[in-house]
């Protein structure tokens, strides 16, 4: 097996007295799609924020390509190659779709012209090219989620963190997004995805990490995790005696 791209070592993040994430460890090898699941409030988004630099971990360590990145600010991690989307989408609402993606392209293409060309290319892969000149605020939810992915992609990340990019989409839109995620993996991008829709997670993930109350309760290939009694309990509660 190759060197892990991302290594999360016993990471803990507390808010006041609450352990939002408690001693979670896992790793991602290059080219994998890892699903991160768990009931509401399990700490998935907090873990995302720790990995992408929005929160510094209280304890533990995060290694990216062997380099310790714990506590580095998001804008440095973005340049290192970690792209992320937000569960609550954050478009630059007053700007056009194209401008949104141009801004993200500056990280790799500091010249305006090259950035614009690169942005067009990204919009074509994500299927937003026809809306390029529209205001970001005029997009539908599906469009905004695509824009989130486009912006993260424009960074040319090696690791892409996707926070619920399928939730809230209708089945056709969802299928298109899944296709997109798989094609990104084929291009060599490693993906960590949070999703509530089990159909999606179980179908596209190579491995799944399950969180509950901030702790990792299971990890493995989707088939095994789905049978794990701890996971079933976390989602469905105790089985009656």
């Amino acid at each position: 097996m190759s060197e892990p791209l991302l290594q999360v070592n016993a990471v803990t993040k507390t808010f006041g007295g609450l352990h939002a994430v408690f001693q979670v460890s896992f790793h991602i090898t290059p080219g994998e799609i890892i699903g991160l699941i768990g009931p509401n409030g399990a700490g998935k988004t907090t873990l995302f924020n720790v990995i992408s630099g929005f929160y510094a971990p209280n304890k533990g360590q995060i290694l990216f390509n062997g380099q310790d990145i714990s506590g580095k600010p998001p804008y440095k991690l973005a340049v290192l190659g970690i792209g992320r989307t937000f569960q609550v989408v954050k478009p630059f609402a007053g700007l056009t779709v194209l401008e949104n993606v141009i801004i993200a392209s500056f990280a790799r293409h500091p010249k305006r012209r090259q950035a614009e060309q690169h942005a067009w290319m990204i919009l074509e892969t994500t299927g937003l090219a026809d809306r390029a000149n529209a205001q970001a605020s005029s997009l539908t939810l599906a469009g905004r989620k695509r824009l989130e992915v486009s912006k993260a992609l424009a960074l040319e990340p090696t690791l892409l963190l996707l926070d619920e990019v399928v939730a809230g989409l209708n089945p056709t839109e969802a299928d298109r997004t899944i296709e997109l995620i798989l094609s990104l993996r084929d291009q060599g991008i490693t993906i960590l995805i949070v999703e509530h829709i089990m159909r999606v997670i179980m179908n596209i993930s190579d491995r799944v990490v399950v969180l509950n109350f901030g702790q990792k309760i299971a990890e493995g290939v989707p088939r095994d995790v789905a049978k794990d009694s701890g996971v079933i309990q976390a989602y469905l509660g105790e089985a009656p005696q």
Binding site: Y75, A78, R84, F86, A104, F106, K111, K151, A154, L155
Partner: peptide, 22 residues
């Protein structure tokens, strides 16, 4: 490019940060 970067921060500084802007 500076103008777009500035506007990005006005529109949403968290998103801007995740895209490599300080």
């Amino acid at each position: 490019p500076f103008g777009l970067k500035v506007k990005a921060i006005r529109e949403d500084d968290q998103s801007a940060m995740s895209l490599g802007l300080n």
